[in-house]
Design a protein around this nucleic acid. Structure first.
Lengths: 213, 213
DNA sequence: CTTAATATTGAATGAACATTCAATAAATAT
DNA sequence: ATATTTATTGAATGTTCATTCAATATTAAG
C-alpha cells in the first residue's frame, strides 16, 4: 500500500463504495418521500434497504453528512431533470415562446420529482449557510440557462434578458409553491393559465422592455 | 386560602387553559425557530418553558395535536401581521400603486415572521390533506383582500382583478421563496427591484388587461 | 500465499423520545 | 365545608434514536 495522505481505493473497492453511497442516498430519498424527511431515520433507511444501520454510518459518519449528501442528490437531479426540458428548445434564431412557457410549467418533470422532500430541505436554508448557498447555486444556474436561450433570439436583443429570466422564474417558482396547495384539477388548470399568460406577457411586452432599460 | 391580591373571575380554569395552551404553542414556535421544527421535541419545549412534558401532553394529547395547533398559530399570525399592512391603504377612489407594491414586499413584516418554521410546516402539505387545506385557505384569503382593494379603484374596473391578484401574489410569494437564498444585501435589493417593477407592470398594463379578458 | 485495507454484519450503548401514571395542588361547584 | 373537577408535578414506561464496537468476510497489495 502506498503511504500518501490520500486514501487510495482501487478498482472494485471504489466501485463498491460509490454504489453503496448512491444506494443509501437514493433509499434515503425514497423513504423521505414516503414518511417525510423528519421521520426518515438511519435505522429506517437500513430496514428499507435491508442493510444494518452501522453500514450506513460506515459511509456517512453522522446524520449531517447524510443530509448534505441528500441535498446534493436532490439539487443535482432537479437540475438534471429540469434543464434539458428547457434547454433542448433548439432555438433557430426564432424562439417558440409558447413552447418555452409550456415546458417551464410542464407537469411531466413534476411527476419525476417529489416536492415534499425538496421543500423540507429548502426549509433548512434558514439555519444552514452552506445549504442556502447550494440552493442559491441551483436557482442561479436555472436562470442562466434561460437567459442563454433568450439571448439566442434576436427579438430579445434590446431587452435585459437577465432581468427577464429572473422575472420569469419568480413566476414559475411562485406558481409551483402555490399550485401545490390546490387539489381540484379544474381550479388548478384555471390558475395555471393565469401564470402562463403572465409569463407570455413578460416575453411579449416590448413596451415594458424599453421602460425597463 | 389568601386571595386578597387576586381577583378570581368565574371561569378561571378556562382562562388558565387558554393561557397555557397559548404559552405552549408560542414556546413551540420560538423553539422551532431556534433549533428547527424537527428538533423541537416535547421534552425540549418543556425545558424551554420550565414545565414538565406531561403538562404539555395534558393539553395536547399527542404530537400531532401540537403540530396542528402550531400551524393554526402560524397561519393566523401570518394573516394577522400581513393583511393590515396592505388593507389599511385607505383607497379613496385612487389607489397608490407604488405604496401598494412597497407594502407587498415590505421587509418589516418579514422581520416579525420567521420563514424557517413557515416553510417546514409548508412541506407538510404534501403528505397531509388538512394542512394543505389550511395553507390554501390562508393564500386564498390574502388574494381576496388584495382583490377587494383593487376593486375599490375604478381604474381597475375593466380588469379581471381576481386574475390580477393571483398574478401579483405569485410574484410576491416566488420572490420571498427566492430572495431567502440571497445573503448579499446589494444583490438582494437589485432583484427585489426586478420583482417590484414586475408587479407594477402588471398593475399598469392596460393593453394586457384587454388581451387577457 | 500472506498481510493489510476495506466492506459488512449484528449486538450493544446510552441518550432522547413520546407517552403514561399516580400523587398533589388549586379552583369550582354543591 | 366538602366533594368534584381540573392543573400541575415528577417519576417511570418502553421505544426509537444515532452511534460504537468487535467480529467476520471480501478485496487489494506485496
Amino acid at each position: 500500500m502506498n503511504s500518501s495522505f490520500f486514501i487510495y481505493i482501487s478498482g472494485m473497492k471504489r466501485k463498491i463504495r460509490q454504489e453503496r453511497e448512491s444506494e443509501i442516498i437514493e433509499g434515503f430519498y425514497q423513504l423521505a418521500k414516503e414518511v417525510g424527511l423528519e421521520n426518515a431515520s438511519i435505522a429506517k433507511i437500513g430496514k428499507f434497504l435491508n442493510i444494518p444501520p452501522s453500514l450506513i454510518m460506515h459511509y456517512f459518519p453522522n446524520r449531517d453528512f447524510l443530509i448534505q449528501a441528500l441535498i446534493r442528490y436532490i439539487l443535482e437531479h432537479y437540475q438534471l431533470i429540469y434543464e434539458p426540458i428547457i434547454e433542448h428548445l433548439n432555438v433557430s434564431h426564432k424562439l417558440d415562446v409558447q413552447e418555452l412557457v409550456g415546458r417551464l410549467f410542464s407537469r411531466e418533470w413534476n411527476l419525476l420529482f417529489d416536492d415534499g422532500v425538496f421543500y423540507s430541505c429548502y426549509a433548512l436554508i434558514f439555519r444552514d449557510k452552506s445549504i442556502r448557498a447550494a440552493y442559491k447555486n441551483l436557482h442561479l444556474a436555472l436562470r442562466r440557462t434561460l437567459e442563454d436561450i433568450l439571448n439566442q433570439d434576436s427579438a430579445f436583443a434590446e431587452m435585459d434578458t437577465r432581468q427577464l429570466a429572473e422575472q420569469i422564474y419568480v413566476v414559475v417558482e411562485g406558481a409551483y409553491y402555490y399550485l401545490a396547495m390546490i387539489d381540484d384539477e379544474e381550479e388548478y388548470q384555471e390558475k395555471l393559465q393565469y401564470f402562463k399568460k403572465q409569463v407570455l406577457g413578460l416575453l411579449q411586452d416590448e413596451v415594458n422592455a424599453e421602460f425597463r432599460r
